[in-house]
Amino acid sequence: MSIQHFRVALIPFFAAFCLPVFAHPETLVKVKDAEDQLGARVGYIELDLNSGKILESFRPEERFPMMSTFKVLLCGAVLSRVDAGQEQLGRRIHYSQNDLVEYSPVTEKHLTDGMTVRELCSAAITMSDNTAANLLLTTIGGPKELTAFLHNMGDHVTRLDRWEPELNEAIPNDERDTTMPAAMATTLRKLLTGELLTLASRQQLIDWMEADKVAGPLLRSALPAGWFIADKSGAGERGSRGIIAALGPDGKPSRIVVIYTTGSQATMDERNRQIAEIGASLIKHW
Rank of each mutant, 00 (worst) to 15 (best):
T147C: 06
R91A: 14
P249T: 11
T27V: 14
R92V: 10
A246S: 08
Q203Y: 05
T186C: 08
M127F: 14
L137P: 01
S80Y: 07
R162E: 05
A230K: 01
W163G: 08
Q86F: 15
L74N: 02
P181F: 00
H24L: 10
T179M: 01
A235S: 07
A225M: 06
M184V: 09
G154Y: 05
I54Y: 15
L146Y: 08
D174P: 01
Y260N: 03
E61N: 07
L47Q: 08
G43T: 00
T27D: 04
G251Y: 06
Y44M: 06
S233V: 01
A123L: 04
M180D: 09
T178A: 05
L73E: 03
T116K: 15
Q203L: 06
L196T: 11
I229L: 14
C121E: 01
V258M: 04
N173V: 08
E210W: 09
I140Q: 13
N168V: 12
I45C: 15
S51N: 11
L73K: 01
W163P: 07
W208P: 01
R118T: 10
A132G: 05
F70E: 02
A182Q: 13
L282Q: 13
R63Y: 15
G234Y: 02
L49G: 05
I229E: 00
N50K: 10
R162Q: 12
F228G: 05
G263A: 09
Q37N: 06
M153E: 06
L120D: 00
E108Y: 15
E210N: 12
V106A: 15
F228L: 06
H24P: 05
A84I: 14
S221F: 11
R81K: 07
A148L: 13
L120F: 04
R238W: 10
P253E: 07
P217M: 09
T138Y: 15
T198H: 08
R220A: 04
S264Y: 05
H24K: 10
R41S: 14
E62Y: 06
G114A: 08
E46A: 14
M66R: 00
D155F: 01
E164R: 01
E175R: 11
I54A: 14
R241W: 02
E35M: 05
H151A: 07
D174E: 10
T116E: 11
T158C: 03
A124L: 04
T138F: 12
N173F: 11
S254H: 09
A245V: 05
D36N: 15
T131W: 04
K190P: 03
A40W: 05
E46D: 15
L89H: 07
S233N: 00
V101I: 12
L160I: 12
M184H: 01
D129G: 01
L199K: 11
A132F: 01
K144N: 11
R92C: 13
K32P: 01
N272P: 02
P25D: 08
Q265S: 08
D212R: 05
R118G: 10
V42P: 01
E270Q: 05
G85H: 06
L38Y: 09
A182V: 09
G216C: 13
K144S: 09
H110E: 09
M153N: 08
A276K: 15
F58M: 14
G114T: 04
L79R: 00
E237W: 14
R202A: 08
A170N: 07
T116L: 12
S96F: 08
T107Y: 02
S264P: 04
G142D: 13
R59D: 03
T186G: 12
D129V: 00
W163M: 13
H156C: 09
D269E: 11
N152C: 13
Q37A: 06
P25K: 15
L135K: 05
A280F: 13
E195L: 04
F149K: 11
P105N: 05
R271D: 15
Q265P: 08
I229S: 02
H285G: 09
K213L: 05
T267K: 06
L49N: 05
E26V: 14
R271S: 10
L49S: 12
L282T: 09
I278W: 02
D129N: 01
N134R: 02
A266G: 11
T116H: 04
L196M: 14
A266W: 11
Q37D: 06
D212P: 06
E175P: 12
E108Q: 13
E62A: 05
S233R: 00
P25F: 12
Q204E: 07
G279F: 05
M268Q: 13
N168Y: 03
T69V: 04
E175D: 10
S264Q: 14
N50L: 09
A246P: 01
Y260M: 13
L146Q: 05
S281E: 08
I206E: 07
L89I: 14
L150I: 13
E87S: 12
T138W: 14
L205M: 09
G242S: 13
L74F: 02
R159D: 03
D207P: 02
L188I: 15
H151P: 04
T131Y: 05
S96R: 09
G154C: 06
I140Y: 08
G90S: 11
G251A: 10
G194F: 09
R241I: 03
N130F: 01
F149W: 10
D174S: 12
A34Y: 15
A123H: 04
I283L: 12
L49R: 04
T116M: 12
G234L: 00
T126H: 13
A124R: 02
F228R: 07
G234I: 00
D83Y: 03
G39Y: 11
T69G: 02
A34K: 03
P224W: 03
K232E: 01
R92N: 11
A183T: 12
L55G: 14
E46S: 14
I244A: 13
D207Y: 10
G142P: 02
V257Y: 05
K109P: 07
R159W: 14
T179S: 05
I275P: 02
G216L: 10
A280P: 02
T147E: 06
S201R: 09
L136D: 00
L191K: 01
A222S: 08
T261Y: 12
I54V: 15
N152L: 14
G52L: 05
L146K: 00
V82G: 06
R202G: 10
N272H: 05
V101E: 14
P143F: 05
T27H: 05
T27A: 13
L218E: 02
Y95D: 02
M209T: 00
A133M: 00
L136V: 13
P249A: 09
D250Q: 06
P217V: 13
I93N: 03
R176E: 06
G279K: 01
F64M: 06
A200C: 15
D129T: 01
V82S: 09
I125G: 02
R271M: 13
Q203T: 06
L197Q: 05
R202C: 10
V117F: 04
N152P: 05
T147M: 07
G234M: 06
V29C: 15
R41M: 13
A235E: 03
I275H: 02
M209C: 11
L199N: 06
F149L: 13
G142L: 00
T138G: 14
R176G: 09
P172V: 12
D113A: 08
N173A: 11
G279E: 03
K144D: 09
V257S: 04
E56F: 04
P181M: 02
C75F: 02
E102P: 07
S57D: 07
T27P: 07
M115H: 03
S104I: 03
G234D: 02
L74Q: 04
L136R: 02
R63L: 11
I256N: 00
S122T: 14
G142F: 01
A245W: 02
A183M: 14
G141P: 04
G85V: 09
V157A: 07
G154T: 05
D113C: 11
S104L: 01
T69A: 03
A235I: 04
M66P: 01
F70A: 15
N130Y: 02
L74M: 13
L28D: 04
M209N: 00
T138I: 14
S57H: 09
G85E: 08
I140G: 05
E270M: 05
Q86M: 06
L197C: 04
R162G: 08
T138L: 15
R81G: 07
R189Q: 15
L247G: 01
G279M: 09
E119W: 02
E108W: 15
A246Y: 07
